[in-house]
Amino acid sequence: MTITKNQRKKQASSGNRLSPYQRYYLIFIGIAVVVPFVPVIIRAFSFSWFWPSILPTKWWWEARENAWQPLGWDYIFSGPSHVGEAIINTVFIAIVVTIVCTAISLPAARVIAWEKFRGKSAVEFFLLTPLIVADIAIGLGILITFLQLGLTGGYVGIILAHLIPTTPYMVRVLTSVFQGLSRDYEEQARLLGATPLKTLWFITMPMILPGIMAGGLFAFLISTNIFLLTFFVGQGNIVTLPTMLFAKVIGGSSLDTIGAEVALILSLPGLILLIITERFLKEEIFAKGFGG
């Protein structure tokens, strides 16, 4: 069994090139991912767009001049649309959820990754179960308790509800961050006389910070995307971008200009996150928690 260097090289290089099918497939996926946004973007800059025109019958900038009321983006950025309020609500809720979620997930992730204890795999499994239970079951179930506690229609209730789907992800991601980290550094620092607090702050924190960032961004994204729990717990009293978009697409027939604009704004956190993670973080960090 002797394999010449040449043979091996040939094998490797042929296995490294795309087959024609794969090429078409990649092109198809690329198109399928990006092109669908085009009509939504066009719609967001249209005034009216009637059958059978392929491009808007009238563009937004053509109509905004002589309109008595703010149209399109002008309306979006005006008070009566409440989009500004929705953005502030969405971001505020997501920030609080991210902070709380990180704070409660860090200690759990640390012991799951580093300590041996009885029932560890059970704990790990149960902390993940909220991911497999339908949102609607959680939402309907939680509603009655929240009603009794007077937590509906306010921020506190929504933030608590958002912790349910975000915490499992956070614990998972942070656990894998701790697992990828050697405990030796901490022990060395302790041997050298650092207090536990100092060790945590000067040794552990800097090492897990990128992981926390990634997990935090992910929790932020999940929170900004949640519709059903916000809708149930908020009782229509607190408007967020997802509840606003839901009202716009509820009929399942074509969007109006405002609907398309809300959809684009709601896509922004994900887009920004994609750029940040791609630029500054190891890309596989999200996959890490899930068998990666």
């Binding site: 009216s48 767009w49 009637f50 059958w51 059978p52 509820i250 009929g251 399942g252 027939s253 074509s254 969007l255 109006d256």
Partner: peptide, 16 residues
């Protein structure tokens, strides 16, 4: 059966 008047309006606008 459209869910509300806005949906019905889009059906007219898109020629359906």
């Amino acid at each position: 059966y459209p869910k509300d008047q806005n949906v019905n309006e889009t059906l007219v606008a898109s020629g359906e």
